[in-house]
Design a protein around this nucleic acid. Structure first.
Length: 917
RNA sequence: GCGCGCGUGGCGGAAUCGGUAGACGCGCCAGACUUAGGAUCUGGUUCCGCAAGGAGUGGAGGUUCGAGUCCUCCCGCGCGCACCA
């Protein structure tokens, strides 16, 4: 009854609205009153902003589970706290609503995914609203709304129309792309379609969004390709269907160009070390060298003879006793000797047949075949055999390696299996460690030729030396490799953003792609009555021939964007969600994403909270898009999310992961119906540290529910309440809410000066709650409030001001109850104050350290480090007096008897330790 | 295999700077009120012991007057990556 009442009042007054610079602020809005603002206020006069963001949910048909509100509650508490602290808080919510489940449902029912999506959003919105979160609902976004994805498409065009300039290390408009001499149009020449086509090919090869015929993960069951990241152990991450590798024409985004900046800029942001580490691992930077091994076969052309490999251990070059090419390596057919061709081709076929699961099986024995060819080790001139084996991956480095079996476990396995030579070139620093298979740093040995000697050098020095030699002799150079691959950006789905791209035929009949004009955005998906891919494997959009085929003979792109697209920039749309002219107004963007230099922080979202499952993909993709937008001048900060916190998983009561099949799923609606939103919120925070994985306990909800009951009884006259409840039972439901006005305050609450112990209890609570909120320690903040209430219940007279302040502390956690009691308080102690000050915008209380000081303090007296007694001494007792008092303490006497005091350590205010012997 | 994190009562967890281990809550035990209690309130609750006292933060060492906290090794659990040359 209390909760819907306040949710309605908050909504009606637009209490949690955030105002953009220049936006009209109603003069009677509590935010305007608190900060003395009215009318249109420019950015400089607005209070300091605080942008607090939740990862927006995918609105699934199953509705909210208890894991969602954990993060949302944490951010809501902090949003309310920041408002009380005087910040201008932006706290929005929206829907990541494109995605496969709605589409698969549509496949079954032939119902437009829009319909399920809208229904699911309505459920999520209702559930989230019932928890009393302080979102600014006027900023709600939905990635499937044409007014939203119009700008997703627009951003794609920005990426499409840009190239990465390695000189500046930035994205630049494609118009600035330089052309090689033979592609520069000469001033006098006429239009040359041949040249134009080649120029176009050059451009298209440099765009940040490009088309490539790439081997991709195709999932027959889902009828779509998946990104590398969406494939787990040879199965689709969603649904666990088998996937196969197959070459297809796909849109790619050149995220690899940003590898270095994505890595380096991690230093600018405040994320947990483990999360940064995951991003670093994913980007996978490794320094090393590219080395060219000549193939010993005069029949090959000069380029074909140059076998490039990447190694992080160039210092082991002298130990390279054979080479391995990936089975897909383009040079493999060229270098294979005729007499080995049959075997190599058989092996290639075998590898292709293998599922990825088999291929990545770690324990499996290595396979491979000899090609009959030899290369020359440039360091020592030795002829070494060239093999092909699937333990070398085409997708990393150059797809070829030099094998140093003595100092690489994989090469060692292989060499032992096939009887290849093993030559030591590194001496382990610890003599007792065998050199065979030693992969750590050591001292180079057996590594010299006529003009290079590594012997005696430590591994880092040897690397340095050998690279210098490679560069001087033209055998290779220093390089950096990344594990990160370009982002496979197209999907063969219906329920996603269509690409704003059309395909045209040039004079020679070749198809090429072109951006649609911005004025044509949004490109809406066509209506279909069948959402399946076409029988010949075309995406579902290809079914809509009237949509695909344009009057001028051009054709629309029929792929759609992956679900990540909409979530890559939603945090920007919240800043200005209804802008039809731009994806975000630059003034609003600078205000909400920027920060004043005094704060000395990197700008961006101040706090972003969400699950760790997005630690790599979403966060990496969003950072990438943000950097492109930054380079092109559309946003003002290099990084989108300044501080990021991952909430932990909530397990079922049995300590297992919640799942339908285990039957341990907790439905928030049920908890809410029984204990209410305040108890639910409080329990979610009381369970344990936000970041930890922890099991749900409905008994635990009862615990915090009892606490809220004690808070109620702290304020409310119980004797009168019995009567009130009786008359409530006789009142029609519709009028019951107004009966709340007749609740009477507890008679022991008086407007009197608090006693020292009462002040101390309150101020200790203010201090603890404030500090814990700053440190995201919600569980201990709640515990501090419990301690306060337990104490206050014992007071014969409860000072009104003390309890009023306590309500402010409680408000972020249990806002409904706090509001109700706040109004009860004002009715009882300040009925003349009208309107009642707004609890949300009431300044957060400070604590007075002086009130926490005790005149006497407890000092622990230890003997040989063991606690023997506790003495009370004046707070400012000097060390000598302390020592004297400690030695005289009653309970320590038996432990001193007959022993010599050797040393006394005095820690003022804390402890005295007497060492005896 | 590699990387990161974590091991504290019957349970969730506290101990923020190396200074009284177990705050707060759940559960349990005893009591009060009550026709009743799955409401509320009071007291107790790490283990051994009647007590004095002893033991105790995964295990073994170490540093220190003093270690849950710092260091070394080991064991266990969780997460991430996984033939990335």
């Amino acid at each position: 009854m209390i909760e819907p009442k306040w949710q309605r009042i908050w909504e009606k007054t637009g209490l949690f609205r955030a105002f953009n610079p220049g936006q009209e602020i109603p003069p009677d809005h509590p935010f305007a009153r608190r900060h003395g603002l009215s009318g249109r206020v420019e950015a400089a006069r607005l209070p300091r902003k605080y942008y607090i963001l939740d990862m927006f949910p995918y609105p699934s048909g199953a509705g909210l589970h208890v894991g969602h509100p954990e993060g949302y509650t944490a951010t809501d508490i902090l949003a309310r706290y920041r408002r009380a602290r005087g910040f201008h808080v932006l706290h929005p919510m929206g829907w990541d609503a494109f995605g496969l489940p709605a589409e698969q449902y549509a496949l079954k029912t032939r119902q437009h995914p829009r319909i399920t999506t809208e229904r699911n959003i309505a459920t999520f919105r209702r559930q989230i609203k019932s928890l009393g979160f302080s979102y600014d609902w006027t900023r709600e976004v939905d990635t499937t709304d044409p007014g939203y994805f119009r700008w997703t498409q627009w951003i794609f065009l920005q990426i499409y129309n840009a190239w990465f300039n390695p000189q500046t290390g930035k994205a630049e408009p494609i118009e600035t792309l330089p052309y090689p001499p033979d592609l520069r149009p000469s001033a006098d020449a006429n239009f040359d379609p041949e040249l134009e086509a080649r120029r176009r090919a050059w451009r298209d090869a440099h765009r940040l969004a490009y088309v490539a015929e790439a081997p991709v993960w195709w999932c027959p069951a889902l009828g779509t390709v998946l990104a590398n990241e969406e494939v787990v152990n040879g199965r689709s991450e969603i649904g666990g269907h088998p996937v196969v590798r197959r070459p297809m024409r796909q849109w790619m985004l050149r995220i690899t160009a940003y590898a270095e900046r994505l890595l380096k800029d991690l230093d600018l942001i405040d994320w947990s070390p483990s999360l940064k580490e995951m991003q670093r691992n994913w980007i996978g930077r490794s320094e090393g060298a590219e080395v060219i091994f000549p193939v010993d076969d005069p029949s090959l052309g000069p380029e074909e003879r140059r076998l490039r490999i990447f190694t992080t251990r160039p210092d082991t070059l002298f130990g390279a006793t054979y080479m391995v090419l990936a089975p897909e390596h383009p040079l493999l057919p060229r270098i294979t000797r005729p007499e080995y061709r049959a075997r190599v081709e058989a092996y290639q076929a075998e590898v292709q047949r293998k599922s990825d699961l088999e291929r990545t099986e770690l324990a499996r024995e290595k396979t491979g075949v000899f090609t009959g060819a030899y290369a020359i080790n440039p360091a020592n001139g030795r002829r070494i055999p060239i093999w092909t084996a699937d333990y070398v991956l085409m997708s990393y480095g150059t797809g070829a390696i030099m094998a140093v079996p003595a100092h690489d476990t994989r090469d060692l396995d292989f060499a032992e299996r096939f009887g290849l030579p093993i030559v030591q070139v590194v001496q382990p620093p610890d003599g007792s460690v065998p050199w065979r298979g030693f992969v750590g740093d050591g001292i180079a040995v057996n590594s010299r030729n006529d003009d290079l000697c590594l012997d005696g050098l430590s591994t880092p020095m040897a690397k340095q030396r050998v690279i210098e030699w490679l560069e001087a002799t033209g055998h290779g150079r220093r390089t950096v490799q990344y594990k990160l691959r370009d982002w496979l950006f197209s999907r063969q789905r219906y329920w996603g953003e269509p690409f704003p791209i059309i395909w045209r035929q040039d004079a020679r009949g070749e198809w090429y792609h072109e951006a649609v004009p911005e004025s044509d955005l949004p490109i809406l998906p066509p209506d279909l009555d069948d959402y399946k891919p076409t029988p010949d494997g075309q995406p579902p959009l290809a079914r809509a021939t009237h949509w695909v085929e344009l009057p001028d003979g051009s054709r629309r792109e029929t792929n759609t964007m992956p679900q990540w697209a909409g979530s890559c920039w939603y945090y920007l749309r919240y800043l200005d969600p209804n802008n039809a002219q731009r994806f975000v107004d630059p003034v609003a963007e600078r205000y909400w994403m920027g920060t004043d230099p005094a704060e000395g922080r990197t700008a961006g979202v101040d706090l972003y909270v969400g699950g760790a499952e997005h630690a790599v993909l979403h966060l990496l993709y969003a950072r990438f898009w943000h950097k492109v937008l930054y380079d092109l001048g559309h946003v003002s900060t290099p990084e989108p999310f300044h501080k990021l916190v991952n909430q932990g998983l909530i397990l079922g009561e049995d300590g297992q992961k919640m799942s339908k099949s285990r039957g341990n799923v907790v439905n928030p609606d049920e908890i809410l119906a029984q204990y209410g939103a305040d108890a639910f919120r409080l329990y979610e925070m009381f369970m344990g540290p936000l970041q930890d994985t922890k099991p749900w306990s409905t008994k635990g909800v009862e615990g915090v529910y009892r606490f809220l009951g004690r808070v109620w009884r702290l304020f409310v006259d119980e004797a009168a309440e019995v009567e009130w409840e009786q008359s409530l039972a006789l009142t029609p439901t519709v009028q019951q809410e107004s009966m709340l006005e007749q609740i009477r305050i507890h008679p022991t609450i008086r407007d009197v000066q608090p006693a020292p112990n009462q002040n101390k209890a309150l101020h200790a609570c203010i201090k603890k709650v404030t500090e814990d909120l700053e440190g995201f320690r919600f569980n201990t903040a709640i515990s501090a409030m419990m301690i306060f209430v337990n104490q206050a219940m014992d007071w014969e007279i409860r000072p009104a001001q003390t309890l009023r302040t306590f309500l402010q502390l409680l408000a972020p956690f249990a806002p409904h109850l706090a509001e109700e009691l706040w109004h009860l308080w004002y009715r009882s102690f300040a009925p003349q104050v009208q309107p009642v000050p707004c609890l949300t915008y009431e300044p957060w209380p400070d604590w007075d350290e002086n009130l926490l000081m005790e005149h006497t303090v407890e000092i622990v007296v230890q003997v040989n480090g063991r606690v023997r007694d506790v003495i009370r001494v004046p707070r400012d007792a000097d060390p000598t007096a302390l020592e004297k008092a400690a030695l005289a303490a009653e309970k320590v006497q038996p432990f001193l008897a007959g022993k010599t005091v050797r040393k006394v350590i005095v820690v003022p205010g804390k402890v005295v330790n007497i060492a005896v012997g």
